[in-house]
Amino acid sequence: MDFTLKIWRQKDAGSKGSFNTYSVKDISSDMSFLEMLDELNEDLIKDGESPVHFDHDCREGICGTCSMYINGRAHGPQKAITTCQLHMRSFKDGDTITIEPWRAKPFPVIRDLVVDRSAFDRIIQAGGYVSVSTGGVPDANEIPIPTSIANEAMDAASCIGCGACVAACKNASAMLFVSAKVSHLALLPQGKVEATSRAENMIAQMDKEGFGLCTNTGACSAECPKEISLTHIARMNREYFNAKQTSNNIPDKEEVHEG
């Protein structure tokens, strides 16, 4: 298969980028999208040009590194997969494919298709710790958790932090990501202890990073490789509003003393 690729090239965070057009020939339909880019980079290196920089790691759809906006969709045209799981048979021979980096102010482009997603790490850090007892090894099933709750928490925990939700959202909102992280712990007994401060702090950090405000379009969930549901955003909203009503985190200049 032959393709024409329009790829965003940008030397570093400070420089202005632009699209460059490349053509790749004799691509197998069984190649993954990243393997196709590897072929292109082999050719570029042979010609003494700088290869196209893109993030990739596990290449089996679980690390969430391979961020790419392909033909107007996060991770390309297929549902519920990352770019590494996208195969060239999803395209037609002779297609022109436009490849762009995630576009969001909190995800600055570092080079070509590589963006800095450390804003997500800072949101996770803001969530803080989970209290655990440090005594002897607890018995299995000591803490009762209904299967339905365990499943729902697992659905939330399957978020790989790839950033497709932010990339696909017309508002560059991170609420699906944050809601998955808030939900995952808020559902489980172990996470309930710090639930209020976790919701407050993670959302405060999300706002501080400069992500947009969710308008419930559902684009995030539709493009999510792990199909995280919008119900988690509703749960995050409940957790946050509840935290604001009940938590003792009062942003005062003086310490509030009990007594």
Partner: peptide, 13 residues
């Protein structure tokens, strides 16, 4: 929301 995405996509579906 506009501030959150200063550079838009060339192709967006």
């Amino acid at each position: 929301n506009k501030e959150a995405r200063p550079i838009g996509y060339a192709v967006n579906k």
